[in-house]
Amino acid sequence: MKLTLDVTATDGRARAGTVTTSRGTFRTPIFMPVGTRGSIRALMTHELAGLAAADGTQAEVVLGNTYHLMLRPGADVVADLGGLHRFTGWDGLMLTDSGGYQVFSLEPKLHDGGAEFRSTYDGSTHLLTPEGAVATQELLGADIQMVLDVCAPLPSSRQVLREALELTASWAARARAAHRRTEDQALFGIVQGGAELDLRKESARRTSELDFDGYAVGGLSVGETREEMLPALEAALDELPEDQPRYLMGVGDPVSIVESVARGIDMFDCVLPTRLARHGTLLTDDGRLNIKRAEFARSDDPVDAACPCATCRRYSRGYLRHLSAVGEPAAASLCSVHNLTWMFGFVGRTRAAIAAGTLESLRRDVAEVWSGSGPGLGDA
Rank of each mutant, 00 (worst) to 15 (best):
residue 1 M to E: 09
residue 7 V to W: 01
residue 13 R to V: 10
residue 14 A to H: 01
residue 16 A to E: 02
residue 17 G to A: 03
residue 17 G to R: 04
residue 21 T to H: 07
residue 26 F to A: 08
residue 27 R to L: 07
residue 29 P to T: 05
residue 32 M to F: 08
residue 34 V to W: 00
residue 38 G to D: 13
residue 62 V to L: 12
residue 68 H to R: 11
residue 69 L to Y: 01
residue 77 V to N: 07
residue 81 L to F: 14
residue 82 G to Y: 05
residue 85 H to V: 11
residue 90 W to H: 07
residue 91 D to P: 11
residue 96 T to E: 09
residue 96 T to N: 00
residue 98 S to M: 13
residue 105 S to I: 12
residue 105 S to H: 15
residue 106 L to G: 14
residue 108 P to R: 01
residue 110 L to H: 06
residue 116 E to N: 14
residue 118 R to T: 15
residue 125 T to P: 01
residue 127 L to N: 13
residue 128 L to W: 08
residue 128 L to N: 03
residue 130 P to K: 03
residue 131 E to I: 15
residue 133 A to D: 13
residue 136 T to V: 14
residue 136 T to N: 02
residue 141 G to Q: 04
residue 142 A to P: 00
residue 149 D to N: 13
residue 150 V to G: 07
residue 153 P to V: 11
residue 155 P to I: 09
residue 164 A to I: 11
residue 165 L to Q: 07
residue 180 R to H: 08
residue 188 F to Y: 15
residue 188 F to H: 09
residue 190 I to V: 15
residue 193 G to K: 02
residue 196 E to F: 10
residue 197 L to P: 04
residue 198 D to F: 03
residue 199 L to R: 01
residue 202 E to A: 12
residue 206 R to E: 01
residue 208 S to N: 03
residue 209 E to V: 10
residue 210 L to T: 12
residue 212 F to R: 05
residue 214 G to C: 15
residue 215 Y to L: 06
residue 216 A to Q: 00
residue 217 V to C: 12
residue 222 V to I: 15
residue 223 G to P: 13
residue 224 E to H: 11
residue 224 E to S: 02
residue 231 P to R: 15
residue 233 L to I: 09
residue 241 P to G: 10
residue 241 P to I: 10
residue 242 E to P: 11
residue 253 D to V: 05
residue 255 V to I: 12
residue 258 V to T: 09
residue 258 V to I: 11
residue 259 E to I: 10
residue 272 L to T: 06
residue 281 T to I: 14
residue 283 L to A: 00
residue 288 R to Y: 11
residue 291 I to S: 01
residue 292 K to R: 14
residue 298 R to L: 11
residue 300 D to C: 14
residue 306 A to Q: 14
residue 307 C to A: 10
residue 307 C to I: 02
residue 309 C to M: 07
residue 311 T to L: 05
residue 311 T to F: 02
residue 320 L to M: 13
residue 321 R to A: 07
residue 324 S to M: 15
residue 329 P to K: 11
residue 333 S to F: 00
residue 335 C to Y: 05
residue 342 W to Y: 15
residue 352 A to F: 02
residue 354 I to F: 01
residue 357 G to T: 10
residue 361 S to W: 02
residue 361 S to Y: 01
residue 362 L to E: 12
residue 365 D to T: 15
residue 368 E to A: 14
residue 369 V to R: 04
residue 370 W to P: 03
residue 376 G to A: 10
residue 380 A to W: 07
